[in-house]
Design a protein around this nucleic acid. Structure first.
Length: 400
RNA sequence: GGUGAGAUACUCAAGUGGCCAACGAGGGCAGACUGUAAAUCUGCUGAUUUUUAUCUUCGAAGGUUCGAAUCCUUCUCUCACCA
């Protein structure tokens, strides 16, 4: 039992520090019913969550199955400093109103994954504000500059002569102090958080709270391209708020290799179930596409509903397998006969008429399912279904 | 503060007076093949209904020239070494 739980906990992790401690916590839970706390901190800087963020949530949900109570920490105080992790320059400060708004957005999203009964949402300003100047000063005596500069990103910036604000030195200290205040048993975070996570252990020792948190680090989820990390700025992300059809389609478009990665980090299936799928694909009894569809269904259902997911699948089948048109698409209306390239731009199917002409030349434009080759084509009054490539559709009404 | 090097399209990167809307690679888009997978092959990848054309673009602003990404001046920023 403990071993099964431990396997699930270990699943997909990049690194675990003090695994023995986790094992003891699990043992106490299974034998004596004792619960323990798992802390995870979130910067309320990014209101739109994508699947990359949910990797951590998924792990927290796994912990909840094995007796953990989650301390879902929203770093409203620390957000005022800005986490220096991975940044090459000092971050801009966030306004309190923005922080509040982002925090609310987080709360509404995370309970799609976490069990609210076993979760406490906390804000670190609650205990950092009362700390005051004296407490803050005390905190700073626990660490020194040389060790702070050992940290990779600080080191690079320091050597390159790029400014590091003193307040940024406080960030890891405060994050660590959160663990002191919350008396966390375990803290989880991304691999890039290692330094900050270890600070929690350090400070728990210094402040003598009688335990040192175990640390569990999750890898960064790759985006749709399978190479770079999932991020909004790279455009390779699946947002938690994506419409069901879009979400389903995006998941189905990932590569087979990446699919297993997503299974490992995002699926709620157990390791044994995933292993069974893998074997099925390898011996040919399962088609990889079916397996990917199952994943797409699971994830779409998680953020929407069973019905929405099933519909998305049916829709996908219609549009792509049978190359029919989707049931729903954006509708546009234009007055008077219009040049096709212009119409494509107006329907947001092409970014420019030049691009539209190229697309026509390459045979990717279809009107009512018929390929168009004449780039001078004029659309007369009537209703048309325009298509560019395989996935962009629009319904256009040309009026007098 | 001193000296030197550099800034070219989404990214890297060639181009040192006209053949430059700018080589090449990556990325992206599209077509073929497929399972909207991967791999592979092909085309496209500043804008514009003048499309074997026109306009705008090579850090910014001026200047030289019939003609400038390329030469000159000033400015802004980045990097390296020294202090």
């Amino acid at each position: 039992m403990i071993q099964t739980a431990l396997r699930e906990i270990r699943r997909g992790t990049a690194e675990i520090i003090d695994e023995a401690r986790i094992e003891i916590l699990l043992k106490n839970y299974f034998e004596k019913g004792q619960t323990y706390t798992v802390k995870a901190g979130f910067d309320p800087t990014a209101p739109d969550l994508h699947l990359g963020h949910t990797v951590l949530l998924q792990k927290l949900a796994a912990f909840q199955k094995f007796g953990a109570h989650i301390q879902f920490l929203i770093g409203d105080f620390t957000a005022q400093i800005g986490d220096p992790t991975g940044k090459s320059e000092t971050r801009k400060k966030l306004l309190p109103a923005q922080i509040e708004e982002n925090a609310q957005s987080y709360k509404s999203q995370v309970f799609k994954i976490l069990d609210p009964e076993k979760t406490t949402v906390v804000f670190n300003s609650e205990w950092i504000n009362p700390l005051g100047a004296a407490g803050m000063l005390e905190l700073t005596t626990t660490y020194n500059v040389a060790r702070m500069l050992e940290r990779d990103d600080f080191d690079k910036r320091h050597k390159a002569g790029i400014s590091i604000s003193i307040s940024e030195f406080l960030y890891p200290l405060l994050q660590g102090y959160d663990s002191v205040h919350l008396k966390s048993d375990i803290e989880i975070g991304g691999t890039d958080q290692k330094f900050n996570l270890l600070m929690g252990r350090h400070l728990q020792r210094v402040y003598e709270i009688g335990k040192e948190q175990a640390v569990l680090m999750m890898p960064i989820l790759e985006g749709l391209d399978g190479v770079q990390k999932m991020s909004k700025s790279l455009g390779n992300y699946i947002a938690v708020a994506d419409a069901p059809n879009e979400m389903f389609g995006k998941i189905l478009s990932i590569s087979d290799t990446l699919m297993w990665r997503y299974y490992e980090l995002l699926s709620a299936l157990s390791l044994d179930e995933i292993e069974a799928l893998k074997i099925g694909v390898e011996n040919g009894s399962l088609h990889p596409k079916k397996v990917k569809e199952a994943l797409a269904l699971e994830i779409t259902e998680r953020f929407h509903s069973r019905d929405a997911a099933v519909n998305a699948q049916a829709e996908f089948e219609r549009v792509h397998a049978q190359s029919e048109i989707p049931t729903e698409m954006d509708e546009f209306s234009i007055e008077g006969a219009v040049w096709i390239a212009k119409a494509l731009v107006d329907c947001a199917l092409s970014p420019s008429t030049s691009q539209a002409r190229r697309e026509i030349k390459q045979g990717s434009v279809k009107i009512d399912q018929i390929k168009l080759s004449d780039e001078q084509y004029q659309l007369e009054v009537g209703e048309y279904i325009l298509q560019v490539g395989k996935r962009k559709f629009a319904r256009l009404k040309v009026t007098q």
